[in-house]
Simulated assay, not measured.
Amino acid sequence: MTRWAPGTPERLQEAALALFADRGYEQTTAADIARSVGVTERTFFRHFSDKREVLFEGQRQLTEAFVSGATSAPADTPPLEIVAGALRAAAAVFPDGRRPYARARQAVIERNPALQERELHKLAGLAATLTESLRARGVAPLTAALAARSGITVFGLAFTQWIAEGEERSFEAVTEHTLTELLTLTAGAAGAARRDEG
């Protein structure tokens, strides 16, 4: 069997996704995935801790993008604008060519409750990391948590829209639209509150 071939992690991801879609996640083993690309099961485990992580391997890159976007904002940037920068940085992780894979991956996740739970855990982890990034910049704890969780909600909704059938806008464009909706909503609520106080 071939070992350590160039692009092995990517080949394993593609093979795993195809097998999960065809046979089902529970019915597919790490050995099946390895065999389908001509490597040993041992090689599979050099790249991924288990078959589930084949679907979540990009979490580190996504987290780094969020943190990079948040930390690169100027010192006096308001919290929601920091979050907006983090969202724009994260959008770069999802080029248009990645959309078919993202759609297929999501279809597999939606058929498996354990994978759905892992996806929710990933989003919660992103929110916690973004919250800490904001707090490190001196943002008050409650404000940091509200801004970060709002940002992750925008991210999740934008992702769902981006992979929808017929959607052709870039991930960045969908994210910007979703973020604008949030800012419009919060601005309207703030205006109503001021009117009530008056």
Rank of each mutant, 00 (worst) to 15 (best):
T43D: 10
E81W: 04
H121C: 06
R46Q: 11
A75C: 02
I33C: 04
V54S: 07
E41R: 15
A84H: 06
R42W: 07
V39A: 03
D96S: 14
A31E: 10
E57P: 01
K51E: 13
T28I: 07
E81K: 07
R105W: 03
R60P: 04
E57A: 15
E64T: 08
E119D: 13
S68M: 05
A114Y: 01
R118T: 14
Y25N: 00
R105M: 09
G85N: 13
E119N: 12
A104L: 12
D96E: 15
S72Y: 00
V39R: 00
P100W: 05
E53W: 09
G38F: 08
R105I: 02
I109P: 05
L115Q: 05
Q59A: 14
H47G: 04
R88P: 02
A86P: 04
A92K: 12
R35D: 11
K51R: 15
V67A: 15
E64I: 04
Y25Q: 03
R35I: 03
V93N: 12
D32E: 08
A124K: 07
T77Y: 03
P95R: 08
S49G: 06
D50W: 04
Y101R: 15
E119P: 02
T28F: 03
P78D: 07
K51I: 10
T63V: 08
E110N: 12
E119R: 14
Y101E: 14
V83Q: 10
K122Y: 06
Y25E: 01
H47Q: 10
G38L: 12
E117H: 04
Q59L: 12
A73M: 13
A104T: 04
R111A: 09
G125R: 09
T29E: 01
T28A: 03
R52L: 11
R103I: 09
Y25F: 15
V39I: 11
A75F: 01
E81T: 05
T28M: 05
Q116T: 08
A65N: 00
E119H: 12
R42V: 14
S36H: 09
R60I: 13
D50S: 10
F56M: 07
G125D: 13
K51C: 08
E110R: 14
T63N: 09
P95F: 04
Q116C: 12
G69V: 02
A70N: 01
F45G: 07
T63C: 09
I82S: 00
G125Q: 11
D76I: 08
R60W: 07
G69R: 01
Q61G: 11
L80I: 07
L126I: 13
L62C: 09
R88L: 11
F94A: 03
A124S: 12
R111C: 02
P74Y: 06
T63S: 11
L80C: 04
E110W: 06
A91L: 08
T43Y: 01
G38S: 05
A107Y: 03
A65L: 05
R118S: 15
P79K: 00
F44S: 08
V37H: 00
T63F: 05
L87N: 05
V93K: 10
A34Q: 12
L62T: 02
A30D: 11
E64S: 06
P95K: 06
